[in-house]
Design a protein around this nucleic acid. Structure first.
Lengths: 207, 207
DNA sequence: GTCTATAAGGCGATAGAC
DNA sequence: GTCTATCGCCTTATAGAC
């Protein structure tokens, strides 16, 4: 029956999801090489060999996590920017993008921090795939920044490449200190950080 | 004789330095768990067992790298700030600190990026030592920022904790893209990045 | 789908020759 | 100081029972 088939299918899918979640949590904490398949299986009260019913190899497992993490950032950022009214200001676009970036980063934290932090220790093929997706993502930011500068909203003297890398570096660093129970929301933190570079931090007397 | 002793001593010391250099380069590239003692020895045309004449364990080796990397940042930053004239502006202090930070980061890149990137995968004891040194370092920045705000040079509305983490996040990100043969010097990159947050990037019309 | 058992190889570390 | 040789453990991955 269709119902039975669906039930079985969704159960397998759920197990696979659980494996991905547990693996992402461990990879992000102890690194790719620092996490054994035994550890992942253990976290789910399974045995290491059982994982091979769901994944062909450790490499394929981490590739899936990396892809999910990065694609999730891209999707979230695009959605947040598209939700804006047509005639939004340059600053509003950047703030929306930053909110999307930080939101995806912190809410799917295990996936994204695995993608961001443990880059160099992953197998070469996985690194290559990550590089491709990340390039696609960074070109979105490049586009927004160029547009803002062309509209005359960002000073001509500003080096957009350094700006982009600096902003994303600051946002990514949030992963290292953000606590969900703090008194600032994710959106607020994103807005504050973009605000720093947009308007500056110095008083009139000090500029 | 004294001369002989000195010669022998300095040769051992040199070998130890070479091991540290090779290990730092490999750790920073492939991570702590992704680098085998065989790999390190191989890079120096030695055998793995020989390393144990110079180090008690892999853990002690990485601890030494971590300590050297972080202490080097602290020393460089302090020196750059102390070289400033007495009555330097708040911005000049932050720029000098950023130049020191970035200079140490990029010139001793293998040591510092080992310290910064591969944190989570290191043995717990090594992590603890790193945390202590890093806290000491971050409190230096905290001090400079508080002083600048008290002098009225940084707006009262600015959250100094987020500012500090954001600035250092942006600077650290430089490790991922800086090429020594680019057209910007390390000092220039530091100055540009501090300039972003100090004065802002937006034109008058867009603020 | 998950288990047990095990293969095949890599790892950190040690002992003793030179 | 560096070598060779080796120990014991851990790793990924596979085979076959259930």
């Amino acid at each position: 029956m269709i119902t039975k088939t669906k039930e079985v299918k969704s159960k397998v899918k759920k197990t696979k999801e659980n494996i991905l979640d547990a693996a992402a949590a461990l990879f992000s904490k102890h690194g790719y090489n620092g996490t054994a398949l035994r550890d992942i299986a253990n976290a789910l009260d399974m045995k290491a060999g059982s994982l091979y019913y769901h994944f062909d190899s450790k490499e394929q497992l981490v590739l899936e996590i990396l892809t999910l993490g990065l694609e999730n950032i891209i999707d979230t950022v695009i959605r947040r920017v598209e939700e804006l009214p047509e005639n939004s200001s340059s600053k509003e676009v950047l703030v929306a993008a930053a909110k999307g970036h930080l939101g995806a980063l912190l809410e799917k934290g295990d996936y994204t921090s695995t993608s961001i932090r443990n880059y160099g220790q992953m197998p070469p093929d996985v690194q290559e795939e990550g590089r491709i997706i990340r390039d696609r993502y960074e070109s979105m930011w490049r586009k927004w920044l160029v547009k803002a500068q062309q509209k005359g909203d960002i000073m001509d003297s500003v080096d957009l490449k350094i700006l982009r890398l600096s902003i994303l570096g600051g946002l990514n660093r949030t992963l290292a200190w953000y606590k969900p129970d703090g008194d600032l929301s994710i959106d607020q933190i994103a807005e504050i950080q973009v605000g720093f570079v947009w308007g500056g931090i110095a008083t009139e007397q000090a500029r």
